[in-house]
Amino acid sequence: MLSLRNVHAAYGSVLALRGISLEAPEGGIISVLGANGAGKSSTLRAISGLLRPSEGTIEFDGKPIDKMRPEKIVQMGISHVPEGRQIFTELTVMENLRLGAYTRRDGDAVKRDIDRIFSYFPVLGERAKQQALLLSGGEQQMLAIGRALMAKPRLLLLDEPSLGLAPILVREIFSIIKTISEEEKLTILLVEQDASLALSIADYGYVLESGTVVLEDTAEQLRGNESVRRSYLGY
């Protein structure tokens, strides 16, 4: 469904990605692991069009998307939940969700989808009319995910959903992610610092180091891999 081949990208003169290649087949959760600065977020940014690759190709459903503008990529069916959530803090929860559906033209379906988001995250329904600024960190993360789902994506890019959240909330959010991926038949590319958490729900994983893939395998194999355990799982 998604394939990156030898993707290079840079901020100014500093290379962030040095030849990333990865495949995400339809369905399931693919986890991208790596240390800080390994290029995990940059990979997602390259896919969603925020970072222009200088070399290599990105294909979605067989169509090249690496030269498309971000809004076109959203229309293709890829939604990106960025690191730090980036919700519209001065707008209401409802307005945030409506903006998520910006690229869609089916008004009635949008209303049904908002209700569906509220069924996954009931707390958002209770706070629909509130300014997003007033939500707690966990609720903001839920809103960010909900907003991304409103675009009806087939591929969801999730960047560090656990960042800054209490462990109990993190477990809740991860179990919802798992549920959503199954119920919506959604492919998820999950970037996560907490490797054991990510591998617990992922089907397949890639390990990044200084902008390139150094290891890939099924989640199960990765959990058993000696060097992954030493470097990322901490035992």
């Binding site: 910006y102 690229t103 675009a151």
Partner: peptide, 8 residues
Amino acid sequence: LASQLVGI
């Protein structure tokens, strides 16, 4: 940034 990501 967020606006770009929702497709505006």
